[in-house]
């Protein structure tokens, strides 16, 4: 199974690997949602939908069904003390 933005937990980050272009509105590209960008999951609404994310400094809310089309590689962060 592909690991996507929808699989991130709150506070986790990932680097975008691939985007299913046909399923994603052009507006999302324009907001900086492009391969190589970093995504941070900030908050879920109840039922984990929509999701509040930070892509390269753009703070956006997208629906889960859109998030499922953005494949990411999880960034393992060392806990900062």
């Amino acid at each position: 199974m592909r690991f996507t933005v929808a699989h991130l937990k709150r506070g986790e980050k990932g680097i975008i690997k691939d985007i299913s272009a046909d399923q994603i509105p052009i507006k999302l590209f324009e907001m900086g949602c492009l391969p190589g960008s970093e995504v941070e999951l900030i908050q879920f609404a109840p039922f984990q939908d929509p999701m509040y994310i930070n892509i390269n400094g753009s703070f956006l809310a997208i629906r889960r069904e859109t998030a499922l089309h953005i494949e990411v590689e999880k960034v393992e962060e060392k806990p900062t003390l």
Binding site: K27, M31, F59, L60, A61, I62, E65
Partner: peptide, 11 residues
């Protein structure tokens, strides 16, 4: 109609 939904969360 595909439900594209993108909302900017401004400062």
């Amino acid at each position: 109609s595909r439900s594209f939904f993108v909302v900017e969360m401004p400062n």
